[in-house]
């Protein structure tokens, strides 16, 4: 898949409707990712589903989904109208359901399929996320792979004990790329006056600045473990953060919470800041910076 620029709208943000994805592409995103698409209609959790605390965002949206037919309507609208490639994110409760959703979603002809195996907010319904165990992560990716000809990106969780094992497993299962990482935690925020957790789901995944150093370490480790291209996600809100992620090994960066900190123009701002850094630092192409934070021999030790 060819990106317009290295900034990708991460899944779960401004991705409910096709026209919203088109609007984000109009604001400069190099590619846009839909909200994760599932088979059946779900309302998601009650409010509050998203809060900003002093060091980041915390969310438990709960995978709302209008059902596959409506999701495909939104996806088709985005694919037909977006000036940037559209990545269709999908979720499911079983590996075989992943296959069913992948087959349906592929008919809408997105540029790529993201396999969301790492949502931390639906454990009570779905059980442990696939992305926490190498075998279940691989099974989900294999099911998608068997049902589509589109390139596949697997979205990994920072909560896995060894994210490199998961990355290797999805690589062997046929993933063409990995996106790392989904939100961290889950965490919790308690209001001390009512003595209650604020999120309706009580717990939620952490993103934004608090996630950034962890995401960076995950991408750094994954880069050493696999040959797949990596979309680095977690606290990207500036050119500086994006470049650090690229130097850790990412080929592109995902942006979500960054929209809260920098507005919807964050994509063009980050691109401009990356360009300024490259001009001053003597880099002519992004490729020259990918993985350069590693010692020279690191990539040979796989």
């Amino acid at each position: 898949m060819k990106l317009r620029n290295p900034t990708v709208l991460a899944s779960g943000i401004l991705g409910v409707t096709g026209s919203s994805l088109v609007n984000v592409a109009r604001h400069g995103a190099g590619a846009v990712t839909t909200k994760s698409i599932g088979l059946n209609e779900r309302a998601g959790h009650k409010n509050p589903i998203l809060l900003a605390f002093d060091a980041g965002l915390i969310n438990a949206v709960g995978l709302p989904c209008p059902g596959i037919e409506e999701s495909l309507y939104e996806l088709r609208y985005a694919v037909e109208n977006s000036e940037a490639p559209v990545i269709a994110s999908l979720f499911a409760s079983t590996a075989s359901e992943f296959g069913v959703v992948a087959e349906r979603v592929s008919r809408a002809k997105p540029a790529m399929i993201e396999v969301n195996i790492s949502c931390p907010n639906v454990a009570s319904e779905f059980g442990r996320p696939f992305a926490l165990e190498a075998t279940s992560a691989a099974r989900a990716v294999e099911a998608v792979q068997a049902n589509t000809r589109l390139p596949i990106v697997a979205k990994l969780s920072p909560n896995a004990n060894n994210i490199c094992d998961i990355a290797r497993a999805v690589e062997e299962a046929g993933a063409d790329a990995v996106s790392a990482v989904n939100t961290l935690g889950p965490g919790m925020i308690i209001d001390i006056h009512s003595a209650k957790p604020i999120l309706c789901n009580k717990t939620g995944g952490i993103s934004g600045p608090a996630l950034r150093p962890i995401a960076l370490r995950c991408v750094y480790d994954i880069y050493k473990a696999v040959d797949l291209p990596i979309i680095g996600i977690g606290g990207i809100d500036s050119g500086e953060a994006a470049i650090a992620m690229i130097m850790a090994g990412a080929r592109a960066v995902g942006i979500g919470s960054g929209i809260y900190y920098r507005g919807i123009d964050v994509f063009s701002s980050v691109c401009k800041e990356i360009q300024e850094f490259m001009d001053h630092g003597g880099y002519s192409r992004i490729d020259e910076m990918i993985g350069i934070a590693h010692e020279k021999e690191a990539r040979n030790q796989k």
Binding site: L14, S19, P64
Partner: peptide, 19 residues
Amino acid sequence: IKCGFGICGQCCVDELGIR
């Protein structure tokens, strides 16, 4: 409206896609 501050995308309207 869910989040209220322009991130979740629930309240976007067609076809402008604005929040």
